[in-house]
Amino acid sequence: MINRIDETRKSFDEDLLRVNDHASLEELRIKYLGRKGLVSQLFESLKDVSKEDKRVVGQALNQLKIHTQSRFDEVRDSLKNKDDISESIEDLSLSGRTHTIGSRHILTQTLDEIKNIFKGLGFSVYEGPELESDYNNFEALNFAEDHPARDMQDTFFVTDKFLLRTHTSPVQVRLMTDKKPPLRAIMPGKVFRNEAISAKSYCLFHQVEGLYVDTDVTFAELKGTLVAFAKQFYGQDVKYRFRASFFPFTEPSAEMDVWWQPKGKEGRWLEVLGCGMVDPNVLINVGIDPEKYTGYAFGMGVERTAMLKYGIGDIRILFDNDKRFLTQF
């Protein structure tokens, strides 16, 4: 009798391993725990056991019952969901199971859009360090040591010779030092400005720098390229203008404005990027002959562009990373 109990337990355990759905579980229940199942049959047989053995066998039988029942319950619970589903399968109005797809930050999305347009125009993408030397950030770019032009960009200094780059332009210097023309690249990245945090300014933002150096690069081509960009990015009917401006590393220098017309409000010109022809001094600093080569450079702020495009009024929300914000884009 004890042997039969042991065998039943073993075969139960083995069968249980193969249970993978409601039907096979039910089969198992009928086989072992049903009214005429193997366990019940064993209990039936208890009456045939001799009196002196009855206590031992009864105990073993009880253990078997507890074991089979509890293992059965566990497996049944684990299959409970499947049960629910099979019961409700006829209700096709139930919602589908959700699967989350995340998103890139809106700044990354904007940057990607800019990147893709310029890649289509034959530009490479280069990156450079954020903790830069004063030389690459200012000196090589024709910012004289104590010229007021340095006040245009409030700088976080790490030492007197190292700083957090104030623009992506030092990547230009690195690129032109490492490689020879023709060079056509954009250089996106994080830049820092030592300004108080407010709705309009943050201590860091993202820029995309552009550079093209070759034997016959002209201001007219710079304009053409930027207009092509603006049309793709802001729409074919974008209204734009170029104004003279000043950057130590370009000459002539310009700023590009686009006409911004919010619905139901007064429109206005908004500056979207700075640009110009690479200053001969910069070319000399990186060992390129300015008589033979000319080049253009431009730079634009990603935050500003994204805020404009999506109607975001406060720059700080971009860096709060509130899920309710992140999931909007």
């Binding site: 034959g122 993408v125 201001f219 007219a220 304009k223 930027l226 170029f242 104004r243």
Partner: peptide
């Protein structure tokens, strides 16, 4: 600057393209 017409086509140089 606005009187300087922008070019309507650009030439694409065939140097190696890089995307960091």
């Amino acid at each position: 600057y606005n009187k300087i017409p922008e070019v309507s086509k650009i030439s694409v140089t065939l140097e190696e393209k890089v995307d960091h």
